[in-house]
């Protein structure tokens, strides 16, 4: 059995109905552990005080904002190449989650930035890149909403996602070129010497895992809703034809 069998809507509905409660429960537990650990059982930063704890929301949200776009890109490619409807609907379902993650990252960043940098907003490369990413999400969602025929909408948004990804990358480097930032370097990297201290690192990784699981649960739920909405639309159309 190949992985493509799960692209069959019927099989997807069956498997996802089984996966959904598990992933939801797992996400709830992981998030509770990670956030609880981070908020209550880690020491305050010696310079930033307890403000630093917003990190446990800010960093995972920012990571997800980018990763969800990448997931949408992969799903769009699968739709454009292999024409699996579930894939297109999953990309559609992921976009509002990605936009929300972008907004969370921007909002928590502003709340963090106010006491640290003395400003809610700065035209810093990272901040600006996220603002642009938010605009890409908005355009993508608006195009889905505007096009009536679902297959046409899936094709057009797929092409937009592809072209948008290239321009999002270009924008990222253009923005780096344009302004030197206030933002600190990456909080996590594969080179452990660069990382935040272990006391912060473990709860942070737990929070990230929680956000990923939360995204998976939301995505399954939203994709199921989209499939049902498609089916409803098809049934209504069939009724009109008959």
């Amino acid at each position: 059995m190949s992985i493509w069998d799960y692209a069959n809507p019927r099989r997807f509905m069956r498997v996802s109905s089984w996966l959904l409660p598990w992933s939801t429960a797992l996400a709830a537990v992981t998030l509770a552990v990670g956030l609880g650990w981070g908020f209550f059982f880690t020491p305050d930063d010696f310079r930033q005080g307890s403000t630093v704890k917003i990190l446990y929301l800010h960093v995972p949200a920012a990571m997800m904002a980018i990763n969800i776009w990448v997931m949408m890109l992969v799903a769009s490619m699968i739709w454009l190449i292999r024409r699996h409807h579930v894939s297109a609907l999953a990309a559609k379902a992921a976009a509002p989650i990605g936009l929300t993650m972008t907004l969370i990252a921007l909002a928590t960043g502003a709340i963090w930035g106010q006491p640290m940098w003395g400003t809610w907003w700065a035209w810093d490369p990272r901040l600006t890149s996220f603002l642009i990413l938010g605009l890409f999400y908005l355009g993508y969602i608006a195009l889905w909403e505007a096009v009536e025929n679902p297959d046409t909408a899936a094709d057009l948004t797929g092409v937009l996602c592809l072209v948008g990804s290239v321009f999002a990358l270009l924008s990222r480097y253009a923005v780096l070129f344009w302004s030197q930032g206030l933002h600190q370097g990456a909080s996590l990297s594969l080179d452990r010497k660069e990382n935040v201290h272990d006391v912060f690192w473990l709860p942070l990784v737990t929070c990230i895992a929680g956000f990923v699981l939360f995204f998976v649960a939301l995505l399954l739920l939203r994709t199921r809703t989209e499939i049902r909405a498609r089916r409803l639309k098809a049934l209504l159309a069939r009724e009109r034809m008959a």
Binding site: G139, L143, L160
Partner: peptide, 29 residues
């Protein structure tokens, strides 16, 4: 992208302006 839409004008701006960011930055810079 928006050719088939009844009121594509506003959507067109929303889609195109983010794509203009790199050109604008490098041009003005």
């Amino acid at each position: 992208l928006t050719v088939g839409l009844k009121r594509g004008g506003l959507l067109l701006s929303l889609l195109v302006l983010p794509l203009y960011v790199p050109t604008l930055i490098f041009g003005a810079e």
